[in-house]
Design a protein around this nucleic acid. Structure first.
Lengths: 244, 244
DNA sequence: AGGGGAAAGTCATCAGATGAATCCTGGCCG
DNA sequence: CGGCCAGGATTCATCTGATGACTTTCCCCT
């Protein structure tokens, strides 16, 4: 096993076994390097790996600390790399997003509070009022994040946040067709928010799924034309059909 | 911005913009370090970060290559860290898994081939025949992986594989109650496989969801007793109810 | 008691040298 | 002519030592 691997797995093991707890400061580089039997340089590379994965967090001048190890810490590490996905992979992500958005919408409808409903509709009004595509995108994100929050599963909420961040990079609202898409999107939001307000999980799930499907369709239509054939990975016609 | 950050984002940008394509070899450390304006050591730390995230892959003596950037490459980076999640977070993961397993089961039922059905039942028979908990766990994994494969979404399949790997660490089958749990699990599998064989998406989804829920229940029952109260994060009674 | 500054502790970065693995090239032999 | 093999070139892996930057702590002075 290489030196960096030794340091990486050694450090990870110390965290997994609880010898280093969440939030705790790990020993200084020199000390830990000696204990693990690697040089400071190799240890630092292992530390950077765990930092990239959201497990630890070095602070210049202070020390290196184990993160809180909350699911969103771990999930968040995807946000830096998910945008490197080529388009075909992105469409697979959309299918996951569709299923999960439908789920959180249904759960949010079952558990909603009056505050949630109030927040959702005020976000909708702000969305309908603005002309700035960037602001609209931001409000759209907050709208969906609020629904995810109401579903009371922070892990799921952060996973969906990562997926949405990836989609937002394409900025469909800035296209010539933007205003039209915006109106359609706003209408979707009203249907979804109304279903949640009515405590109707089935309708909420359907509205959320339709909304994501619509977004996906725009992406397929307006984005990279995908070179013809020879890819062998495209499905035939129908999208899915089953479930939910 | 720090030197490592400069190297990290610079390198990521080169990949995002296509200057470095999937599978391509990146310039040697000395050369790239000079171009990015950082020392070899700092560049190496940035390279390790991207490697931990599944974006690039250094090969000793040969060079450092951009990965294929397939979704499973990116998702796979979670497998090293997801097992560090404490139990409360794991239960949130289970909810996601439940929803997604139900989805892939339904989709598999709609798209199944005779070969898939044959494979599923042969795995079931192998599971029922073995006494080795480790082998049973391995076969269980392959059973669910086969269903995910039939759903024709590699990203989703690899995500579920990561989730399952996390659960397997607990090795419930090695408990005193193991044999009993195994029989129940086997029965679940037969119901699920039968629904898929019958091309019945609804039943398949229900069976998959019930199976995951059952597994989750075992984990709650037999694992770390979770210190009483004071946590404030536990839900009341009902699990979910809506959707699927 | 409070403020300021020095000192210690720790991570960040760089430079240079050496080892290890792989790849390539050219010559040798069958 | 083709295959094998040895040696050099290329590249990543690791270590060592030194210096800079940032944070925290603590003590002294007011």
């Amino acid at each position: 096993m290489s030196a960096v691997d030794k340091a990486f797995h050694g450090l990870r093991h110390m965290i997994a076994t609880g010898r280093l707890g969440a939030g705790e400061r790990i020993p200084p580089e020199a000390e830990l390097g000696e204990e693990l039997g690697v040089s400071r340089g190799s240890l630092r590379e292992a530390v950077r790996m765990l930092a990239a994965l959201g497990v630890i967090e070095p602070r210049h001048g202070s020390g290196t600390y184990v993160s809180q190890l909350r699911p969103e810490d771990i999930i968040g590490s995807l946000s830096l790399t998910l945008e490197l996905l080529p388009l075909p992979g992105l469409l697979e992500v959309y299918e996951i997003r569709r299923v999960l958005e439908a789920h959180v919408a249904a759960k949010a409808a079952a558990r909603r509070t009056p505050e949630t409903v109030k927040t959702l509709f005020s976000l909708i009004e702000a969305m309908e009022a603005t002309d700035d595509p960037a602001e609209a995108s931001e409000l759209d994100h907050r709208f969906h994040a609020e629904i995810a929050r109401a579903a009371e599963n922070p892990t799921l909420a952060s996973l969906l946040a990562v997926f949405r961040a990836r989609s937002r990079k394409y900025q469909v609202f800035t296209l010539p067709e933007g205003p039209e898409l915006r109106r359609k999107s706003d209408a979707d939001h009203r249907v979804l928010a109304t279903a949640i307000a009515d405590r109707d999980p089935g309708s909420a799930a359907g509205a959320a799924e339709a909304h994501v499907t619509q977004t996906e369709r725009w992406l397929r239509a307006f984005m990279p034309p995908v070179e013809e054939g020879a890819q062998g990975r495209e499905k035939s016609g129908e999208a899915d059909g089953a479930l939910s």
